[in-house]
Amino acid sequence: MPRLPMKLWIGGTIVVLLIALAAFAPLIAPYPFDGMSLLNRFKPPSAQFWFGTDEYGRDVLSRTLYGARLSLIIGFGATLISLVIGVPLGLIAGFKRGRIDEWLMRGTDVLMSFPPIMLGLLVLAATTPSLPKAVIAVGIVYVPVLVRITRSVTLDLVNEEFIQAAHARGERMSYILAAEILPNAWPPIVVEASLRITFAILLGAALSFVGMGAQPPSSDWGLMIAEARPFIDRAPWIALAPGFAMCITVIGINLLGDGLREALDPRLQLSRAG
């Protein structure tokens, strides 16, 4: 049993801490995230306000803590959406082949011909922006990738003997897909999904940053940075706190993902080239 990679430990610790901070934000945060105080506008970091205050006198630390919730919701929520839509479509495409496969693949071709942020903006353009819609938009952006991955795994599996046996027993397609193929198709899908989480967090933040995601007074990190922009000469801390928080989050999840892959995939350990 090889010892667990260092990356896994560091990443795991960061992610667990983050989830704890996000979950207990109401208990930890010294102030409400939207509590304004006109007497305390633009206060630099101090003992009273660790990360300072913003233009409305809101505590930046509290806002950043609550923002962790939104960031994790975007990351995991959007990934979940793309899994829920993408995996069944990929399974069906790989299993049925033929015309339905052709149509689904051409559909993903079209969707993948959009730059990711453009597809997100296009989805959001159709409605008034809000955080839940941003989560859905980001989720949709990554559906085609998951369809393709799932399809190619399924293609490899359909010719296996145990699937043919299930055919011979006269099992229904839904049973074969859910009970025979899916459990064996999981590993590459999970690896891909773990990659998508940080992409989703960054894309969601970018959408909020350009004003197409979370709306004020939400403490989404992307939105916080956008709102802090006009004041960066006199109050840089308003932008720096959520920015660093986002770096730590993304690095943590990436390390965890990399570590998991190294731990699960023995081939990677032999040729530790990339």
Binding site: A205, A226, M246, C247, V250, I251
Partner: peptide, 8 residues
């Protein structure tokens, strides 16, 4: 570099 959003 890759872990930080470009706007930050």
């Amino acid at each position: 570099g890759i872990s930080v959003p470009e706007f930050f």
